[in-house]
Design a protein around this nucleic acid. Sequence first.
DNA 1: GACATTATTTACTGGTAGAGAATGGTGCGA
DNA 2: TCGCACCATTCTCTACCAGTAAATAATGTC
Lengths: 305, 305
Amino acid sequence: MDRLTALQVFRHVAELNSFAEAGRRLGLSPPAISKNIAELEAHLGVRLINRTTRRMALTEEGRIYLEHVTHGLDALARADQILCPIKTAPSGTLRVSAPMTVTLTWLSAAIPEFLSRYPDLKLDLHLDDRRVDIVREGFDLAIRGSDNLEDSSLVARKLAVMPHVLCAAPSYFEKHGRPKTPSDLKAVNCIRFSLSGHADIWEFRKDGRTERIAIDGRYSVSSSLAVRDALRAGFGVSLIPCLYVESDLNAGRLQSALDDWNTVETTLYAVYPARQHLAPKIRVFLDFLIEEFSRNKESVHASPA
Amino acid sequence: MDRLTALQVFRHVAELNSFAEAGRRLGLSPPAISKNIAELEAHLGVRLINRTTRRMALTEEGRIYLEHVTHGLDALARADQILCPIKTAPSGTLRVSAPMTVTLTWLSAAIPEFLSRYPDLKLDLHLDDRRVDIVREGFDLAIRGSDNLEDSSLVARKLAVMPHVLCAAPSYFEKHGRPKTPSDLKAVNCIRFSLSGHADIWEFRKDGRTERIAIDGRYSVSSSLAVRDALRAGFGVSLIPCLYVESDLNAGRLQSALDDWNTVETTLYAVYPARQHLAPKIRVFLDFLIEEFSRNKESVHASPA
DNA sequence: GACATTATTTACTGGTAGAGAATGGTGCGA
DNA sequence: TCGCACCATTCTCTACCAGTAAATAATGTC
């Protein structure tokens, strides 16, 4: 027996004081009404409605039962209704995890405009370069580099490609020489971004040939911005997303090397739990990310040139 | 989809934080759990639970929904529980319709004892010689004479047989003669109980012969007690339940006639709406009636002798 | 007194809820 | 590090049940 429909049948019958009318209202045949009431009574072991073919009236038990049932049914209906606005308009709190550096250099400036576009939305943005467990920690969405991409039941949406560039301060190159081939890097102080998937081995490609260099160095750090600071200070060379050193290269504070080699690219993904029933708040933030990253694409791609 | 089980599944999953554990608790297979949640989400168009194979967490919407659903589910559970004591122990209000005279002469004296036996029970006893519509007027039980017995969907339980006796005051018989045969009644002032089914035609049987006499008289009244008053006053003769005139006959205030003829009997029934799921309050009152009428039977049957 | 309406019963059917097996994925412990 | 155990999901299949239709019984109305 489907008790929920039985309860709704009971409620309608009680309120309309008629089996037939309740059937018409609910789109059910008279027998269906009868059976539902009879089954409900059998389930409870209590007679709820006294009825002849012509007349019906709630028993005392029926009246008591109706009161509680009505209350419960209304609460359940309210539960459904409360989700209605949520599933159409963005609202509530959006919990997002994003890598520190990407956010600070690329995204955070645009966040206020995004939030002002959706006044009912709150944003809880966690800056963390770790690969967070999105489900366990209750995030709605995470921005990840391809290094960290786990191939689970999550959905990944590509946002942007971040080409890398090998660079150092002019002073460093003057002192230690400018590498001409990837293998020159073996003898060089390489600053490593420890959270990268390719922290210890750097790849270079040219003319279909791939060189994989196990690099070494005295400084390993978990923030690209710290890497940049070390580069600026002339401490060593590093392979770093172009984006982060764009202005340094333009201003001559840093210089690139091995420009004729293609190097690793980090693809940036938005990762979220499911494609079905995607909440509007996630949907709009995703759209915002796509829009934002595509807007900046040309400037980024132009930078290494 | 059975939404009630889906909601219960959702609730258990949310509270136990595990699909499998919820399945074990509810006696359902893991696939059943999955499907219920998926269907519930499809129905709402909202993702309630983010899940990988290893971990799961409510979404914000899920948390909001759970709160309301829990509330509704509890209300419905309470509705069932509230009926539990009612369906086992007599309680609440018992609405009974009974004929005035039968009650006053036979029953009402025992009512207080009955009520003190069931302290949680209230009795609303309507004394009315009309044939009431038991369902329309919301009675739990009615006491009826066989005259009024409608053959509907109601249940009738035989309580007692009330033999009648033809009688009048000695003064009346002295003045107008004592009838020797039923047909003598045609010339006699017959007092009629108007609510009886045999008010205008009185039947007498003897040796397999039946005499049906269309009687006449100047006084018709809707209470047997008024008939008795008229008899005592020597106004005429009447056919009246032995019970009502027992003491009068014993004391010689009234005298019977046509004692060698069998006359009509009124069978007393308890009538109630249904045999299934008979409420305890009705059950105990019915038992009380049966007990009470069977206790008095011998004295009643002895009276006409 | 014929008709219309009502609740119920019976027999039947289509949809579906649940089990079982298999798959892909993940954490824990040896 | 590998393997084991567990978990959620998908697919397929079956059994059951909810609802309909037609027939019945009862009752109020014109």
